[in-house]
Amino acid sequence: MREDKGLSEIRNIIARHKLWDLIFMIIGVLALMIAVLTFMALFSHMLIEGLPRLSWDFFTSFPSRRPGSAGILSAWVGTTLVMLVTAVAAVPMGIGAGIYLEEYAPKNLITEIIEINVTNLAGVPSIIYGLLALGLFVHQLGFGQSILSAGLALALLILPVVIVATREAIRAIPVVIREGAYALGATKWQTVSDHLLPYSAAGILTGVIIGLARAIGETAPIITIGALTFIAFLPPSPVQPEFPFLSFEWLMAPFTVMPIQMFNWISRPEEAFQVNAAAAGLVLVVMTLTMNALAIYLRYRMRKNIKW
């Protein structure tokens, strides 16, 4: 009789604790759902507001005072050119730094400082990079409010992303690969360029794509540089009909980019401009999501394929 009572009490306790498990499961799913639903709301709101506005003309028109005929031509051209500068500046630098820290760096104070510094740079707010670019590139080096200044500012911003991705990709390569190369008489750089870099290429690419996707959406540093919001012309073409066929004048041209164009339209009071903002935002979201999805897919493929 007494034992039964004790047993049922224990059963009660167990049931109560199992109930807690269940309750937490539900709370967890709800928390996850909040994030999912917010994203759905964001995306569908933009889709409903912006999709009717998307047309061929929207991509081939300059911004205008009349919301109906305004477009994002100068914005997407500007974004493309700025990203070109960013990639050219950040990718070699980031990969080089990553290789150095993983393969060359001796264990000393300078290496430790560089490592702590890379971690800290990743936590610096993006607008601070804009202030640096404003003081250094725009005024001190005299690049002005140009594509070059913006591209370099964003390059500094994504540098830590590329460095970390490179380091992780190289670190994942087993030591035996290096030992094999050294055993055959390869120098350090031959080992790196013939073995480590090709094997880590996919991982590095993933990091570069994520970095560039972030740079495309960055608004604050470019506003700080002083990008103009109303640009009704294109920068000079990089390809010229006459000798020497290539021109770098576009680097110094004033510009606007997608997020700035969108920000400009959001801050107008007229509702018609906010429809334009939704359409521009939709293009922007699709661009960054595609890039991120590509990176996620690449990483997934990599995890499945590589077996050392």
């Binding site: 994030a35 964001l42 969108m262 959001i266 922007l284 979201v285």
Partner: peptide, 23 residues
């Protein structure tokens, strides 16, 4: 869920601003 959350972190902040103001 993990890739989805990652995508959520990849949305440009100006788009979140738009969402906050108008939704």
């Amino acid at each position: 869920a993990k890739p989805f959350l990652e995508l959520l972190g990849g949305v440009p902040t100006v788009v979140y601003g738009y969402f906050a103001l108008l939704f």
